[in-house]
Design a protein around this nucleic acid. Structure first.
Lengths: 337, 337
DNA sequence: CAAGCCGACGCAAGTTCTTGCGCAATCATG
DNA sequence: CATGATTGCGCAAGAACTTGCGTCGGCTTG
């Protein structure tokens, strides 16, 4: 073997004991000596133990499923900024890109000794997906925060937008405009935020004394194209207004309506979800439900920082109130002529 | 102390010797046992020695300036995917967010022992910015690739889109539509891609025997709002067509035109740059110049992988050909009535 | 100036990790 | 079925690392 300690000790002119103390961050070594030892380490090409790098750049993993849906870059930017203010640095991991799975990223982040992990949408929102890596994080006591509705029993603090209330608002808006056949375009069936939206939809329907017609509910994936396909089906069932679970889905819905020769909002009203970037620029400007991502992002970072600093935080979900932003993709229902 | 070996050995049911061999990558251990030991190590929360991470999770830093402009998430997604196919994992760093500067990220990435760094827009595109950290990477011989036009003399391989040719195409398109007062809405004056666009603009102007009127050129920052402000000035000088250096700038320009009561494209034609996501959905669908980001991203990853594998790569710039995508934000110039 | 204190460090015992060697199990072969 | 090769692993010696304790020198204090 190489007898690192011995070599370094000789180079610096101290005992092995002193080198050992430096390498382990133990007290009882003068700052000058510590410097000298570390320098010698670098010069001799040895790797410093991770501990000595740790404090310098406190990393936080930020796991998002994709970057196609503009809500994720937006959230990433808010969270990244908030972390930076706390002296933390975000490492953004896109889990559904290519081959790297969420679990693989968690492994990676653990290896990189991150101070914590923030998930913004991911497998914890899907009931049927793997959740083992969330338990691993719990075991390791690594600070973790989940943004957006999660399956139950994961034991991590959560920040989410009140999906149910959001859909109720949207439903109310469409009802006020005279719509009666209101469709709901959701994500996958096991997607918790979608389930909550469905619950909100059912509640709102009940309130106006209407039963939920399952033909007016459709599940899609998360892409615009998938939204377009689902919307085609909804249109066949005569919807005049549709609430979508994301902005890309809403844009897909608009496209589907147009393919069918329908005008938005004259023939069909469409409501998005998230109020992501540029939704004022699309045609027609999208009526959508704004998640307070600024506040949510900051709250997530707060929750994380508290954990990093050692306080226990409640794992109860922090629910944020959404806000309906009315633009031009919704209009009063037209009387069939 | 904790007697890691002993604890792990007991947990797995092997001797300390075997655990030691696993931890040091020594032969003489079956693959199954090796797996078991590593798993136990993770479960018990011990850190794997760097050697064992090296191969498994080869990290590549991916530095982008922001996530607001959709081109960057898009590029990040392409590059991330291409890296994943090579068994590399992207760590996305957003440099202009909050306090973490590009140099700080480079430090960080060096400490994290990344295999390489890909920059996608950043300080190397700005002549007046700090470039020391690029030299540091060169010194350390860390594989590095720059995407997009860079200042000269950095010594790293580069992949870029032919900004000059792009503007010439756009200029040709507007000219063919009868526009004569064509404006150019650029990024900051020291921004190399913008300088190249200006050069292309000048060349195209010369070709049709027109001098460049400096009043028709304006510099903005990178945001939509900034584009809107600059466009206001351009409109005062009577432009009927404007070529913008990014899609957000173009959307800002559209907004400015509307504020002025002008219709796009009837009164003003506007051309964007990048063809980012959703540009088919905006109003009017944006005529824009598509960068082949798929090809560019893959090329960047190729260049990086070659370096990682030890081959020398040419530092000459790989220039990609852009493609004009004509949609609805450009139209023949209207004869003043 | 003696006395006391304290930080920095080395000594060496103690602990933990590494590795040469050999045994046992498995497998291919004559 | 015996034989030898090969592989996986434990044993235990010893190498490498850690740490309690004591020493030394400098500094403060009475």
């Amino acid at each position: 073997m190489t007898r690192r300690l011995a070599v370094v000790a000789e180079k610096v002119g101290v005992s092995e004991a002193t080198v050992s103390r430096v390498l382990n961050g133990k007290p009882g070594v003068s700052e000058a000596t510590r410097e000298a030892v570390l320098t010698a380490l670098d010069v001799l090409g040895y790797e410093r133990p991770t501990r000595l790098r740790g404090e310098r750049a406190r990393l936080v993993g930020l796991v998002v499923p994709e970057l196609q849906n503009p809500i994720f870059p937006a959230l990433a930017e808010v969270i990244g900024g908030a972390l930076a203010q706390q002296g933390l640095t975000a490492v953004l991991c896109t889990s559904s890109t290519g081959l790297a799975s969420e679990a693989a990223y968690v492994d990676l982040l653990l290896q990189q000794q991150v101070s914590g992990v923030i998930f913004a949408g991911g497998q914890y929102t899907e009931a049927d997906a793997q959740h083992d890596h969330y338990r691993l994080l719990l075991q390791r006591k690594l600070p973790t925060v989940l943004v957006n509705a999660a399956v139950e029993g994961l034991g991590h603090p959560q920040v989410a937008c009140d999906d149910g209330a959001a859909v109720e608002q949207a439903f109310g808006h469409l009802t006020a405009l005279g719509h009666e056949r209101i469709g709901l375009l959701l994500g996958p069936p096991d997607h918790v935020p979608s389930q909550r939206k469905l619950a909100g939809f059912a509640a709102a329907s009940a309130r106006v004394g209407r039963a939920v017609d399952p033909e007016l509910i459709d599940n899609a994936m998360f892409s615009l194209e998938s939204g377009q396909a689902s919307m085609m089906r909804l249109l066949e069932h005569g919807v005049t207004g549709v609430i979508c679970a994301s902005d890309p889905l809403a844009l897909g819905a608009i496209r589907a309506a147009r393919r069918r020769g329908l005008h938005v909002p004259r023939d069909v009203s469409i409501i998005g979800y998230d109020d992501s970037m540029l939704m004022t620029c699309v045609d027609p400007a999208l009526t959508t439900i704004r998640q307070p991502i600024e506040a949510m992002g900051k709250a997530a970072v707060d929750l994380l920082v508290h954990q990093v600093e050692g306080s226990k935080v409640r794992t109860a979900e922090l629910l944020y109130e959404p806000e309906l932003v009315v633009r031009s993709s919704t209009a009063p229902v037209t009387v069939p002529t």
